[in-house]
Amino acid sequence: MRRLLPLLLSTAFRLALWCLLTSDLSRLNLLIGLVVALLLPRARSRPLPVRVLLKATVRGLLAIPQAFAEALRLVMAPAMVEREDSEPATDRALPLLVFLDVFRITLTPFTIVLGLEDGGRRYRIHTLTPASKEDSEP
């Protein structure tokens, strides 16, 4: 199952995109979509740990409402501070997980990933947050 998961996931994702693009669920169209999904080249991938992947996906989805909250706070903020920060990477061996992490961090307006540091063990992050009282005092 773990070995098959990358194939299943990418095929299902491509088929879903195909269905959205054509908005046609007839049997013939589904068949064409399935053939296209299988024929498109795919990256060589390792077995995916399901639990970690699910967790990363849920965190990525939760980042969307959080992004709006942060945007609101930035819009309201009278002053902002920029900083550099870092966060440990979950698992750099799995490109999909790194992608989900980068997506989750960069989506929120407070933080942008600048790259990997420390040999790929940490994300280098640039943050922009509303200034607190201590920051605004000289």
């Binding site: 945007a71 930035l74 819009v75 902002m80 920029e82 960069t106 989506l107 307006p109 407070f110 942008i112 640039h126 922009l128």
Partner: peptide, 9 residues
């Protein structure tokens, strides 16, 4: 980078 933060909003 600050402009990029604003652009993501």
């Amino acid at each position: 980078l600050r402009k990029l933060h604003a652009l993501s909003v």
